[in-house]
């Protein structure tokens, strides 16, 4: 839910000089780079794909819902009542089986077996509904993810990936234009050292590299 965080780091487009120094500063690679000139896919192909994905979304939800519904049977066994009821029925069908501690205890408590079975069926019904809902939700997530990664848009500036950024601030010292961190653009600072290395190659100064924005 980082996407909805109020106080995220952001890269101010008007101050960014596209120096690219921040590209590798993020340990998680959550700074999105400009993609101008990089999009090579035909727009019509992308639009068609999106259309197919939107059509497939309900089907995907239904499929995953059905899988969740089927999965509710083994999952419901993690409920004590269901497991006990199943054990009782298995022992009933196979008298040669040694009764388990649970079934033996249940029998001594005097609760009618049918009461347990009714409870187990209730749990199973709830799990069934829950299986449909959870499966459908998972299908929705998958579908939304597929649609999300199929959406392409032109990006002119460096941007923080708001969905994933932790706002750890490690990128801040690398930005030579950040007003807050301008005072850090001194020897020892990674951005300064990187700019210095480039400056040596270009025969210019680190400040000039930072201002110039390209290497």
């Amino acid at each position: 839910m980082s996407r909805f965080a109020r106080w995220h780091l952001s890269i101010t487009p008007t101050e960014c000089v596209n120096c690219r120094l921040c590209e590798k500063s993020c340990p998680f690679d959550y700074i999105k780079k400009p993609n101008v000139g990089l999009v090579r896919e035909n727009r019509a192909v992308g639009v068609h794909r999106l259309g197919y994905l939107f059509v497939a979304l309900p089907l995907l939800i239904a499929l995953c819902g059905w899988v969740g519904h089927r999965l509710s049977v083994p999952m419901s066994r993690y409920h004590n009542s269901v497991r006990l009821a199943e054990n009782l029925l298995v022992e009933q069908a196979n008298p040669q089986l040694e009764p388990t501690l649970e079934t033996t205890t249940f029998r001594t408590q005097g609760t009618p077996e049918t009461e347990l079975l009714a409870g187990a069926h209730r749990v199973r019904a709830q799990m069934n509904v829950g299986g449909w809902l959870l499966g459908g939700f998972v299908g929705l997530i998958f579908g939304a993810k597929l649609i999300g990664v199929s959406l392409s848009r032109t990006q002119k500036d460096y941007e923080v990936d708001r969905a994933h950024c932790f706002s750890c601030g490690r990128c801040c010292p690398y930005c030579p234009s950040d007003a807050i961190h301008k005072g850090n653009f001194v020897p020892g600072n990674p951005a300064y050292e990187a700019a210095l290395a480039l400056a040596k190659v270009q025969g210019t100064t680190p400040e000039a590299v930072a201002k110039g924005g390209t290497a």
């Binding site: 089927r70 999965l71 009821a85 298995v90 009714a118 199973r124």
Partner: peptide, 25 residues
Amino acid sequence: ALALALPWRSPLDEAPATSVADSQA
């Protein structure tokens, strides 16, 4: 999920809830 769910057979499926409509055996 399907590999887990499809082969699963529960004895409860063969003990219909209707047989316990009343709260006793």
